[in-house]
Amino acid sequence: MWERLARGPHAALGVDNAASAPEIHHAFLELAKVYHPAKFARMSPEIQKLSNETFLQLRAAYDQVSKAARARPPAAVPARTTGPIPTRPGAPPATPRATGQVPSLTRTPASSQSLPRGAVPGTRASTPPHGIRTGTPTAPPARPATRMPSGAIPTLRNEEAEYATAKDAVARGAYQEAYATLEALVVQAPSSRNRGLHCYVRGRLFLAAGQREDAREALFDAKDLDPSLGSIVDAALAEVQRRRS
């Protein structure tokens, strides 16, 4: 296992770079049957420690690979609107990089464990002696500016107008169109409202592509990011459920 882990997270899990989130999950579960520390609970403390470490690495590989798979744009689906499918200039390739930071579109900072809560510069309340506080300038910004080649960023006319355009497209069921608008919007204004709608549209696109598990993830993310989307998210989730049965 160590050898596989050394060859990178995809090799560790035995999946290829294009594997879908459910495929990755399945691969992880099969490995867990063999490498979970409970399987070694009656062996020597050294073996227990080693098995624990192996499994932690396996989980880290799984977390990395599945996060990347979920951040991937939904598979292209026939747009409901007429006209060409809008593709964003300079969009990242469909296959994620195997390593490194994958910009998390789908996680709130609060649920991301690498980002400390309250990592806001200038929050320096009066503190007791020898206390410690959260907050670190070393934390990566929520969206690295290097994600897209310079010049490829569409100029943002007006955040509110863009959001309204997207919302209007959503109302018409033109999710591809809404997605293109929102992809650009969340890069420049990653507010939880904008990201929430972005996730909702991703969920809709996954649903249309028949990727139910991905759809669920995205829809729940949408609700977490913007609770006011609750009712339309619930309607979409009910649709996911109908497809299941």
Binding site: L56, P116, P128, H130, I132, R133, T134
Partner: peptide, 29 residues
């Protein structure tokens, strides 16, 4: 525990175990 008796969560509830998580803290003095 960080300044002001705040709880800075490193491992969140309902995290699958075993697990490992890291967080960076800074001095206050």
């Amino acid at each position: 525990k960080v300044a002001g008796d705040k709880m800075s969560v490193v491992i969140q509830a309902n995290t699958s175990i075993p697990t490992r998580a890291k967080k960076v803290f800074a001095t206050t003095e």
